[in-house]
């Protein structure tokens, strides 16, 4: 009962985060909102595993947490340099 209520609250939070991703106004706001959405999704997957009584979902949550981080960094790098190749100079490589 309480697990279901918590899961619903988390879904509401996901919807609110998506509103910020839609509103913007800058690119960084959208990236922040998507990153937040990803973090809440990790919590949602863990909750969902408990709700349906299948803790195997935790492996997916674990992988999702890591992919969420890599995606954020990759999108940031793409917006800063325009491509995903390794930095052309040591300064650029150090920056990200």
């Amino acid at each position: 009962m309480i697990i279901t209520a918590t899961t619903i609250a988390i879904v509401i939070a996901m919807a609110i985060a998506l509103v910020r991703a839609y509103l913007g106004p800058t690119t960084y706001d959208r990236i922040l909102a998507v990153n937040l959405f990803g973090t809440i999704t990790v919590l949602f997957i863990s909750m969902f595993g408990f709700m349906t009584g299948r803790p195997d979902f935790l492996d997916i949550a674990l992988v999702y947490a890591l992919i969420n981080f890599i995606a954020t960094i990759a999108v940031l790098k793409f917006f800063e340099y325009g491509d995903l190749s390794p930095g052309r100079t040591p300064e650029q490589e150090r920056d990200i």
């Binding site: 690119t27 973090t39 674990l62 969420n68």
Partner: peptide, 23 residues
């Protein structure tokens, strides 16, 4: 899962703030 969230979120937020300053 908690450890990964805590480790990655602070790094991602710092990278985001730094990228915004540079942008």
């Amino acid at each position: 899962v908690l450890l990964f969230i805590l480790f990655t979120s602070c790094t991602a937020v710092h990278a985001l703030a730094k990228a915004a300053i540079h942008g």
